[in-house]
């Protein structure tokens, strides 16, 4: 079994490999998070507006 240190070292390319993966997953997860948050926020706002309106 390969050790964790060996894995993290990436054969000496750790900075480049982890930077590339880091920037990719940072952007993808932020974008997913923001998309869900925007949807929920808008839904909540519209519901509130609707509740204030008479039926």
């Amino acid at each position: 079994m390969i050790s964790l240190r060996h894995f993290l070292a990436m054969g000496g390319y750790s900075f480049y490999v982890w930077s590339a993966y880091g920037i990719t997953f940072a952007i993808l997860s932020y974008y997913a998070f923001a998309s869900i948050r925007n949807y929920k926020r808008l839904q909540r706002r519209l519901k509130k507006l609707l509740a204030q309106q008479p039926q």
């Binding site: 390969i2 894995f7 990436m10 054969g11 000496g12 390319y13 480049y16 490999v17 590339a20 993966y21 990719t24």
Partner: peptide, 24 residues
């Protein structure tokens, strides 16, 4: 891509960037 694939014979472990670069 990060664990099971062997390092590239020319590029070593740096080739693993392919797994985020090519799909993007």
């Amino acid at each position: 891509g990060l664990i099971l694939a062997p390092p590239d014979y020319q590029q070593g472990d740096a080739f693993r960037i392919i797994y985020v670069h090519v799909p993007s």
